[in-house]
């Protein structure tokens, strides 16, 4: 198992009340598996993704990434895990506005202090080589999301997390992007989780997990 979320609860206090964004939720994802998390707004799916991505620590429960519980690590260690083991594809791509496409990928290597830059191979693989000297504002929405997927693969992570990857795309582009994501996860034997509202792309997932009021159904 690449990722095990074991009885995760995330509670927030709201005045005198306690509010559970996630209530005793468990999930397992193995290498080569692509899971879609669906549910209404405020159901806790973003919280789930943030905990899986080591951006948020759970109130209780264990997060085992590659066999290691990352729930109790220091923030410095957690940052390092994100850099080494997790790839993110954000809503609206979230590319850095002042970096050319090739540097969007190279920044990952710079942060990881790894010398060899294999960004060009990835760009060629994604059919973006002719765009490598363009800035994000010169790309189409689909191209931006492809760059974001390439960036997520840059550090050769075990886990890829996608937050609403189709939110800013029309349905055709959205399907293309999710298909690409699913193919990469399969071919590279990564574990993948995607949070989405978009029912048209669910067919690309191996499993669909529905969350309602912080509970997995």
């Amino acid at each position: 198992m690449t990722l095990i979320l074991d009885h995760i609860t995330k509670a927030y206090t709201d005045g005198p009340n306690e509010f559970k964004a996630l209530d005793n939720a468990s999930l397992e994802v193995k290498a080569g598996e692509f899971i879609a998390i669906v549910g209404p707004s405020g159901s806790g799916k973003s919280t789930m993704l943030s905990i899986a991505g080591a951006l948020l620590s759970p109130t209780s429960g264990k997060v085992l990434l590659d066999g290691e519980n990352i729930a109790g690590l220091s923030s410095k260690e957690v940052t390092k895990r994100r850099l080494d083991k997790i790839g993110f594809v954000f809503q609206a791509a979230h590319l850095v506005p002042y970096l050319k496409v090739k540097d969007q990928l190279n920044i990952i290597q710079v942060l990881a202090k790894k010398g060899k830059k294999h960004g060009n191979d990835l760009l060629a693989h994604f059919g973006l080589k002719h765009r490598m000297n363009n800035f994000p504002n010169e790309l189409s929405g689909g191209e931006r999301q492809r760059v974001a997927i390439a960036r997520a693969l840059m550090n050769d992570p075990q886990l890829i997390l996608a937050d609403e990857p189709t939110a800013s795309l029309d349905s055709k582009r959205g399907q293309e992007v999710v298909k690409l994501l699913a193919d990469e996860i399969k071919n590279r034997n990564k574990a993948g989780i995607m949070v989405t509202h978009d029912e048209r792309v669910l067919s690309f997932a191996d499993h669909i997990v529905t969350i309602r009021d912080g509970k997995i159904e």
């Binding site: 927030y12 994100r82 937050d163």
Partner: peptide, 12 residues
Amino acid sequence: IDPIEAIEGAAY
């Protein structure tokens, strides 16, 4: 700045 801000709707 919290990295959680990168995920829409996750920050309370």
